[in-house]
Design a binder for these strands. Structure first.
Length: 445
DNA sequence: CTGAAATGCTC
RNA sequence: UAUGAGCAUUUCAG
């Protein structure tokens, strides 16, 4: 009974989203004035709640957890309370909770965690407005978008490098999420959404501020990293870059300068005048109130120097066999380092477990997940290296555990881990990088 | 084939 | 220790 109700609610929301997408697609300049009622629909709020709950995320500053909502308050009354607040225009968001998480480069990233109720309303708004913006977004944008992934962006770069666009502008925006100006961002929202109440909701989230040491800190720039709509807003704001690029036809014949963007990370690939196209991008970003990180933004000639994007390293080199130029991409050194660190950590933590469990439940999922992300491109050598690193690390661990010196490798050859303990075979995922065999099936195990 | 749950990986 | 997207594996229900 409940399952049936959930299903129809899902269907109704999907139908609504489809309608909105088609309406926006058939009329590219249409601005939508009646959306708030859709945000308030109980189906939409229910789907929004399900999406938020599925992450099992931490509570915000009000300490309200999913357990409290489901066991004490009840989901239905929690949602109808939100619904009446919205309809009576009484809803105001609470400030976000400030949490810092370490980034890969050692610096810290500030998160802003909204309370669960605010996350639900944000998810509801996202359900309603995302289809409208999806209809406008350009093909060169790959980050945070439904049915788009990193592999497609990598493939696009590969394509342009093979089409002799060897000049690469590798751009890095200075703390993008925190520097988006609220006023201009809201203008971007209004290109499609002119329902005042919906725009007001978004404005309130931007202005809600962050709770830091018992004080509310308010900003005029930035969208909280941790909010449900933040990725959509971030994408929407940089859409100006994509659309300007298209309007000036920089991606077309005389220019031949192609943007590939993944959220705030983007490269421009061109065959000539990279300085000019960097300057053009800078002009757009200036108008948006954004700045490029001068130290990290650079122009490279891909034939002479590799560059990294989305965890991969790209290099254009003459083929050892035929001598013609070919593009290669494979896990970047950083990615190699971080997966080794992860293997090392789980093996150290699980050294008192029995080997099959450690391999099956801890090591294999890491190898499988990592391998599936990097299996495109030319990763065979790097997969082999990680596979060897894994057997070696396990071997060292076993030798220490059994207090044996020497001969560990002879007792535990790589095949021993694979054949008797079911260690995941990384190289079963990799395909060779040759033109002819790119579409070959993975090597059978 | 479509949902739900769990785990893992990338950005 | 949040958010979005994508991918993979397992389990369950139709």
């Amino acid at each position: 009974m409940i399952a049936k109700a959930e299903n129809t609610s899902l269907e109704r929301v999907q139908v609504l989203q489809r309608k909105l997408y088609l309406a926006a697609k058939t009329n590219p300049t249409r601005k939508f004035g009646v959306l708030y009622d859709k945000v308030c629909q109980i189906d939409v709020l229910w789907m929004a709640y399900k999406q938020v709950r599925a992450n099992k995320g931490a509570p915000g500053i009000d300490q309200q957890t999913f357990e409290v909502i489901e066991k004490k308050v009840g989901v239905a009354s929690f949602l109808t309370e939100i619904q009446t607040e919205l309809m009576e225009k009484r809803y105001t968001p609470l400030p976000v909770k400030r949490v810092y998480i370490p980034k890969a480069d050692g610096t810290q990233r500030p998160l802003g965690i909204p309370v669960i109720a605010d996350r639900v309303v944000q998810a509801a708004v996202k359900i309603v407005i995302e289809p409208l913006f999806e209809a406008t977004f350009k093909d060169c944008s790959y980050g945070f978008r439904p049915r788009k992934n990193a592999q497609q962006a990598l493939r696009e770069i590969y394509k342009w490098l093979n089409f002799k666009c060897h000049w690469v502008v590798d751009a890095d925006l200075k703390s993008y999420f925190d520097t988006i100006p609220h006023d201009k961002l809201l203008l971007s929202v209004r290109t499609r959404v002119i329902d005042r109440s919906v725009v007001k909701l978004i404005e309130m989230w931007l202005k809600a501020g962050a709770m830091e040491e018992m004080k509310i800190r308010k900003e005029t720039t930035g969208t909280p990293q941790g909010g449900v709509i933040s990725p959509l807003l971030a994408n929407l704001y940089l859409h100006w870059l994509d659309s300007t690029w298209e309007k000036k036809a920089f991606g077309k014949r005389p220019h031949d300068a192609h943007i590939v963007r993944y959220a705030d990370d983007f490269v421009i690939l061109c065959s000539k005048r990279p300085e000019f196209y960097l300057e053009q991008a800078k002009k757009v970003l200036d108008r948006l109130g954004l700045t490029l990180n001068a130290k990290k933004t650079r122009i490279v000639n891909a034939m002479k120097e590799p560059f990294d994007f989305l965890g991969h390293r790209f290099a254009v080199q003459p083929s050892k066999v035929t001598g013609e130029l070919k593009t290669f991409y494979y896990p970047a050194p950083k990615a190699m380092k971080s997966v080794k660190q992860k293997i090392r950590d789980v093996v150290r933590k699980g050294q008192h477990w029995d080997l099959p469990t450690l391999v099956k439940e801890k090591v294999n999922p890491i190898l499988r997940g990592w391998g599936n992300y990097f299996k495109t491109g030319n990763s065979r050598k790097h997969f082999l290296s990680i596979a060897n690193y894994t057997t070696w690390t396990l071997c060292i661990m076993l030798r220490k555990k059994h207090k044996k010196r020497g001969k560990g490798w002879r007792d535990h050859p790589p095949s021993w881990f694979y054949d008797y303990h079911g260690l995941f075979k990384l190289y079963s995922l990799s395909v060779t990088g040759d033109e002819g065999s790119r579409y070959a099936r993975p090597v059978p195990s």
